[in-house]
Design a protein around this nucleic acid. Structure first.
Lengths: 196, 196
DNA sequence: ATAGATAAAGAACAATGTTCTATAAAATAA
DNA sequence: TTATTTTATAGAACATTGTTCTTTATCTAT
């Protein structure tokens, strides 16, 4: 008697695993994201995760990279007359991404960022930050922002944004209109960074 | 023949468990914080955690509350001539707490805050926020800050602080002097919130 | 001092990340 | 096309961890 095992085609299994993981992540959160469930949802055995990603952390890193690619797209906006306006629009995109993908955002910024990431993952994350630095630099050039180090100012803007969406995702918000409160905080920060 | 089990005295075992958990947390991080290791370090069996805290999450909630009590102490400062200065000093204390207890801060804000907490834990956290609201309110009364809702402004200040220390703890910082960058961000935000 | 109540020790259980092994599918060669 | 080698997957097995169960040492009240 021969075995009854069947083997699924190897085509695009990697993508299926990532898709399954993303779906489970947003549905059940990080604790619900088990290797078995991801593999099952993708129609493969748990081993499939290990042959393709090396470990569960490897899969999570793939989600991390997917997330930063999405974030990059969310903050990328066409040029406008005012560089500061373009920066503001990008910040709104940042919040939109976070609010629309709360579990993924949590994974990216509150889990993976604390772990040892591969150089590729770090590069990708840094590229997103680079976009923000560019916007800040442009606003400095147009004299809409003061200061000398666009990197340092960008870090401060990013910090404020991250803190705001992070607490909002956690359900810690005492303002009635959270989008408006986010914008108000950002406006205050940018006003305080304007030339005087 | 009688068993060779010994039973440790019940006095102050709860505190021993919390102390052990805090030590392991900062030494090995959240993944290293296992019930067995905590119990072992406290000199009791794993069951001790369950009889006293109900579950591992119960123990983590005790750490959460310990953390917020410490944070409360860190942001609590004596009155000064300028309410805004007092607010600023409290914010520096906030950062100091976070940087000195990075793993605990991570547990508090990036893990527990996302879970279902007991009313006691929520109250304690809200009390810390209340202190910040008071400082903001005082600065509004002295016309050093503008705006009508001290709660909303306090939330924005907290957001910015949290984002800054959160990224700093994660190792994401592009400024040379991080304490200075934190202060610079805070200054910009408070300037942007000043009456005009 | 004795009896009952309490809670802790240690074993056992369930779930999860990971590894191992047999083998089905694919790739290659003749 | 057929035979052989390689690859990667299915399913079982293993280690660790959160949790529960059972036995029994310790505590408390009389």
């Amino acid at each position: 008697m021969q075995g009854t095992r069947t083997r699924t085609a190897s085509v695009a299994v990697t993508d299926s695993l990532i898709e399954a993981a993303l779906a489970i992540l947003e549905e059940a959160g990080l604790p619900g994201l088990t290797v078995r469930d991801v593999a099952s949802r993708a129609g493969v055995a748990p081993m499939g995760v290990y042959s393709r990603f090396g470990s569960k952390d490897g899969l999570l890193e793939a989600l991390f990279m997917y997330g930063f690619a999405s974030l990059q797209a969310a903050i990328e906006t066409p040029p406008t007359a005012s560089p500061l306006t373009r920066l503001r629009t990008g910040c709104q995109g940042y919040r939109r991404f976070a609010i629309h993908n709360p579990q993924l955002y949590h994974l990216m910024f509150e889990q993976m960022l604390l772990l040892d990431l591969s150089p590729e993952a770090k590069d990708l994350a840094q590229r997103s930050f680079g976009t923000l630095v560019e916007r800040v630099h442009a606003a400095m050039t147009s004299s809409e922002l003061a200061g000398t180090s666009s990197t340092e100012v960008a870090q401060q803007v990013w910090s404020a944004m991250h803190g705001a969406v992070s607490l909002e995702i956690a359900g810690v918000h005492f303002a009635t209109d959270r989008a408006q409160s986010f914008t108000a905080m950002l406006d205050a920060l940018l006003i305080g960074m304007a030339p005087r």
